[in-house]
Amino acid sequence: MLQAIHNKLDELYPEMVDIRRYLHQYPEVSFQETKTAQYIADYYEKLGIPYEKSIGGNGVIATLTGGKPGKTVALRADFDALPIQDEKDVPYKSKMDGVMHACGHDGHTASLLTLAKTMKGFQDELPGTILFLHQHAEEYAPGGAKPIIESGALDDADAVFGTHLWATTPLGVLQTSKDVFMAGPDRFDITVQGQGGHGGYPHETKDAITIGSQLVSQLQQIVSRRLDPLKTAVISIGQFEAGDAFNVIADKAKLVGTVRYLDKDVQDQVMKEMEKIIKGICVANDATYTFNYEKGYPPLVNHAEEAELVLKASENVQAIHTAEEVKPVMAGEDFAYYTIEKPGAYFFTGAQKEGNPYPHHHPMFDIDERAIPTAAKTLIAAYFEYQKQ
């Protein structure tokens, strides 16, 4: 039956592309994906597959109960976009100013929708129940996964699997981990309050730019000099805002950045070290400060048995020539909440487009659309492997 399912998915490839390109032209950012959610619901309405809307926000879950007994498994695809201007010169370029599918979630949605259409035709032979889990707001904490879980919609699920079309991994390559797979992404902002003044009289001021620059430099010492060398973290400053004129010493500076970690003990240590450094530098410069640290998603930790199932399932997908275990990546994913609650695994489906070297969250981001059916085939292959347990 699996081969017949894969053949049907191949037949639906033009529809996958059409869906992906339509969604690419009409993206919606996190927590505002109402039209996308309705598009998904309308698709299931036409298929005659029962579904529920507005789960945990804009989430949509469709339920396909097979004709044979078995386990209930959720297959997840996210569908939110990013506040990025699409700079590609393609027919399916985003028509929404300042909003873009720059992470492949349009492809995830196309993959899961056409998989549902395919499986509807095999319902009588299907063991168990598939929950087609369409999740909103992956890109922005607190995210969509946690409220979906809290809604109780996945209480009956035995396991959950998901994939990400990964634009920096070659087509035909599957990557996963049997342990920590993706980092916990936190956010912080620091505001330094100094005392401004004339650019020619710096000795009469408390230069917020100088103080902020010291912070940028010294915060990097946490990773290189305070953490155990066998553990890791990332501290990146993404914004540094200060000053209004060339001849005025700035009285205020704002720094915004992210911390990435794989171990909660490291997260705790980084937070404490940051507080000490910020306080010490500001006190030394007779300045005041505010420091806000927002914890994001936890690290994504795969279950070893389910990750092994994914690797085994990939052997049944002709388009995959390499399936490998990889080291953790420092990007974050709120799929982490699912594997805290349920057995499950997340994996990357290689989607690198020839001639397009741009990474996720880039204005020129794009994927090789041939990866979309590969993702669907692997998800359903993992589903069947799990039913054998």
Rank of each mutant, 00 (worst) to 15 (best):
H164W: 03
H164K: 10
H164T: 06
L165C: 05
L165P: 01
L165N: 10
L165R: 06
W166T: 06
A167V: 10
T168F: 04
T168M: 14
T169A: 02
P170S: 14
P170D: 15
P170Q: 09
P170F: 06
P170R: 12
L171G: 06
L171S: 12
G172E: 09
G172V: 06
G172T: 06
V173G: 04
V173Q: 08
V173R: 05
V173K: 08
V173I: 09
L174I: 12
L174Y: 02
L174M: 14
T176N: 03
T176M: 03
S177L: 10
S177F: 05
S177M: 09
S177D: 05
K178W: 00
K178E: 09
K178Y: 01
K178M: 11
D179P: 00
F181Y: 13
F181H: 08
F181W: 06
M182F: 04
M182Q: 11
A183S: 13
A183Q: 05
G184I: 04
P185A: 13
P185D: 10
P185Q: 07
D186S: 08
D186A: 04
D186Y: 01
D186K: 04
D186L: 03
F188H: 02
F188E: 03
D189T: 12
D189A: 06
I190T: 05
I190V: 13
I190M: 02
V192E: 05
V192S: 12
V192D: 07
Q193G: 03
Q193A: 10
G194K: 10
Q195A: 14
Q195F: 14
G196F: 11
G196K: 08
G196S: 09
G197N: 09
G197V: 02
G197C: 10
G197M: 01
G197F: 01
G197H: 01
H198R: 12
H198F: 03
G199F: 05
G199L: 09
G200Q: 06
G200L: 10
G200W: 03
Y201E: 15
Y201W: 08
Y201A: 15
Y201D: 15
Y201L: 15
P202D: 00
P202E: 01
P202C: 04
P202M: 04
H203G: 01
H203N: 12
H203T: 01
H203M: 09
E204L: 15
E204F: 13
E204M: 15
E204I: 14
